[in-house]
Computed example of a mutant assay.
Amino acid sequence: MNRNNPPIPVPLLMLVGIVAISFSSIFIKWSVAPVSVQGMYRLLFTFLLMLPFARPYSGAAAALRLRDWLLLFASGTMLALHFLLWMGSLTFTSVASSTMIMALQPVFIMVGAYIWYKEKTAGSAILGMGIAILGVVFIGWGDVGLSADHLKGDLLSIGGTVAVAIHMLIGQKLVVRMPSFLYSLMVFFSAVIVFAVYNLAAGIPFFNYPAREWGIFVLLAVVPTVFGHILFNWLLQYVSATTVSMNILGEPVGASLLAFLLLGEQLKALQWAGGLLVLFGLAVYVFAGRRIHNDFIDKGVTINE
């Protein structure tokens, strides 16, 4: 992991990313296209936006080993699976419930990081995680499991959460060996291929969508992907996958507020209280994580390599 700090403070970058990804569920709810088509064009348009800036990374791409390419494809496959399952969950359950469950990914990340990378987490950071997760549970408490459709949406969101956790753990391994831009570019391209094969096999049309849908595809590419996922991938150079995923816990707060304002989804008092708990838990976790990171730097030790 890079010992230096990014040119812009990490908390500010995290805030930008959280706001950006909070719009994702809103755009998905507005669209009537199949979620696999939304996911495919979301990543395809992002890939095309990034492609003009890819030439400086051609040397780094040529230096990649076969194992790196296989891991990139695996990461892209997990990203495609995440979008397919999570975006599909929004068809059956509310924004608050779906994003609440997806925000539990730090649990999977923390376990995976400990098993694969021997990454340890301080007790104070675990406390922050617990507070934030409790707040996330409050946000979705009112409508989780109220019907068969809600249960189906919940299960889809859980599957998507596991997939994105694996995607992030693979990414943490790869970004120490290649530029984050190259990593994102190749992972998005891999995910596009996976989506294209899926749509082709399922007989889902690639075209014949109204202009409004194409506009939503572009918004999905620019807002939550470029200013959300790409930003978080870049931050993996400076902070651990666990820290990045913990800050994504802010998405249920932002998404629930946007769903209330733009979709008319009602929030209960318990959910508003949950939002405050999430923010407080994030503050505790980020403070503990930054203190540990700085301690390692002061001792001249690199972490998570």
Rank of each mutant, 00 (worst) to 15 (best):
S256E: 08
Y285F: 15
P56T: 11
M100Q: 11
I297Q: 09
L146K: 14
L220V: 09
A33S: 14
L279D: 08
I26V: 13
S157K: 04
A96N: 08
V192L: 13
V176A: 12
V239F: 06
L169D: 02
Q237A: 12
M100G: 14
K152D: 00
A74K: 03
N304C: 09
N199G: 09
V278L: 03
A201C: 07
G274Q: 08
A80F: 08
F189W: 14
F73N: 04
V278S: 01
A63R: 15
L257P: 02
K152G: 08
L200T: 15
A113K: 04
V192A: 11
S94F: 03
V16Q: 11
I139E: 04
S94Y: 02
L282D: 01
V253H: 09
I101L: 14
G274N: 04
S190E: 04
F138V: 06
L261I: 13
N4L: 13
L151T: 10
M110Y: 07
V10W: 06
I101F: 05
G160N: 01
A259L: 02
S75H: 13
R42C: 03
H293I: 13
H82A: 04
R290V: 12
G153F: 04
V32F: 14
S245A: 15
V222P: 00
I204C: 11
V175K: 07
V107Y: 10
E251K: 12
L146P: 01
L64T: 05
M246Y: 05
Y57Q: 03
R177K: 15
F217D: 01
F138Y: 11
L85G: 00
V187C: 04
A283V: 10
K152Y: 05
V144F: 10
P52C: 10
W69C: 13
L277T: 05
S124K: 07
A202N: 12
F45V: 05
F47Q: 01
K152L: 11
V35F: 04
I166R: 00
S75T: 03
L15Y: 13
I139L: 03
N2G: 09
G76N: 02
I18V: 15
F217H: 08
D298Y: 09
V226K: 09
I126R: 03
L13W: 01
F23L: 07
G123L: 15
V286P: 01
L257E: 08
A20Y: 03
P210Y: 08
V244H: 02
F232V: 08
L182K: 02
P106Y: 05
W86M: 00
L231P: 02
P7H: 08
S94P: 00
V244M: 12
A62C: 10
A165Q: 02
W214D: 05
